[in-house]
């Protein structure tokens, strides 16, 4: 049996596949990169060849310009590419539009680099597909038993109830520009909120991109009107950084809401001055992480980034061989 380290091993730039000569989600420019998804800490500009889903490539082009890489190689979900006997297949990860797990197979050994993922339904992307493997390489952003995200429908209902209770105030929802913002908008539409949703300028291009990919967001308008009172009773979506910023002063007595898994912990909400925390995350929570590992029962579990300590302990208690890669350069996107 081949050692998994000879197929994939951690390097300063990221996970490296020596027999195929490529990196997965490298944090600095490399010759060949497989990119799992479009979040800035996973998808950087300046690589030679980029292999990713067409959606991820479109997101990178939108963010960095058409010349973000030397050349690109689109790989739709389920499609494979082979090079020197190493086969790479992209499989849905359920994280954001275009997000994929990279399934790397070589000489009978299968390793899955999950990238960022979640297990629950998301109206903006296909669900995570479990792939049997010898080594499962997982994130652990919310790798602590305290993080157990509630049902997102419950959180959206909380927001809508607050809008009803405070009709004179604007509700400002902080949401990361790629994925979270569009998911919140879709969830609001599903909950029956048909009114115009106002959006910060930083979200506009990605909103359009999602719409071009068939995700209908309903009536949106830029949050730049000058009359303060126009925003009373309205919902505004903005990147998290704008919540406590001067930008927020244009709205009448805003209720600051923030959609993030970190909002599970009250002190975090208090620290940021969030009045209405919405525990909605695009990452797997503790129960999803452990259920996924339990379901796959990989020969080995590798943990890329996040809070690996507790997940290592859990694996040990469940007799699963685990290893923390402690890759640097990946931060949770909501921690702006």
């Amino acid at each position: 049996m081949i050692r998994p380290e000879s197929l994939l091993c951690p390097k300063p730039e990221g996970l490296y596949c020596a027999p195929g000569d490529f990196f997965v989600d490298p944090v600095s420019p490399v010759a060949r990169a497989v990119i799992t998804h479009g979040h800035a800490d996973h998808a950087r500009a300046g690589h030679g060849v980029v292999i990713a889903t067409p959606e991820t490539l479109a997101i990178m082009a939108e963010r960095y310009g058409a010349d973000f890489a030397g050349s690109v190689q689109p790989l739709a979900y389920g499609e494979s590419v082979s090079r020197d006997g190493v086969q790479v297949t992209l499989v849905p990860a359920g994280h954001v539009l275009g997000s994929a797990q990279a399934v790397v197979a070589w000489k009978g050994l299968t390793m899955v680099v999950s990238g960022d993922y979640k297990r629950r339904r998301d109206p903006t992307c296909p669900p995570f597909e479990p792939v049997p493997c010898d080594v499962f390489i997982s994130e652990a952003t919310f790798g602590s038993p305290v993080f157990r995200h509630p049902d997102d429908g419950h959180e959206i209902a909380k927001l809508l109830r607050s809008v009803e209770q405070f009709p004179d105030r604007a509700h400002m929802v902080g949401a990361y520009a790629l994925g979270k913002a569009q998911r919140i908008i879709r969830l609001l539409r599903e909950a029956g909120w048909e009114r115009t949703i106002y959006v910060h300028g930083a979200l506009e291009r990605l909103n359009h991109l999602y719409e071009r990919h068939g995700i209908a967001l309903g009536p949106l308008a830029p949050a730049t009107s000058t009359a303060k009172q126009d925003f009373a009773g309205q919902i505004i979506i903005a990147p998290p950084g704008a919540l406590a910023d001067r930008w927020s002063r244009r709205f009448p007595d805003p209720v600051s809401a923030f959609a993030s898994g970190w909002m599970q912990v009250r002190a975090r909400a208090r620290q940021r001055g969030v009045e209405l925390p919405l525990v909605i995350s695009d990452h797997a929570d503790w129960d999803e992480l452990t259920a996924t590992i339990d379901e796959l029962r990989p020969g080995e579990l590798w943990i890329t980034h996040g809070r690996e300590e507790a997940l290592m302990r859990w694996a040990q208690l469940h007799d699963i061989k685990a290893r923390a890669l402690a890759l640097v350069g990946y931060e949770d996107e909501t921690e702006d």
């Binding site: 038993p145 302990r313 208690l317």
Partner: peptide, 14 residues
């Protein structure tokens, strides 16, 4: 697991 609980308590503080 009391160890996992202990770490959780350290993190949350309440």
């Amino acid at each position: 697991d009391p160890v996992l609980f202990g770490w959780s308590y350290d993190y949350v503080g309440d």
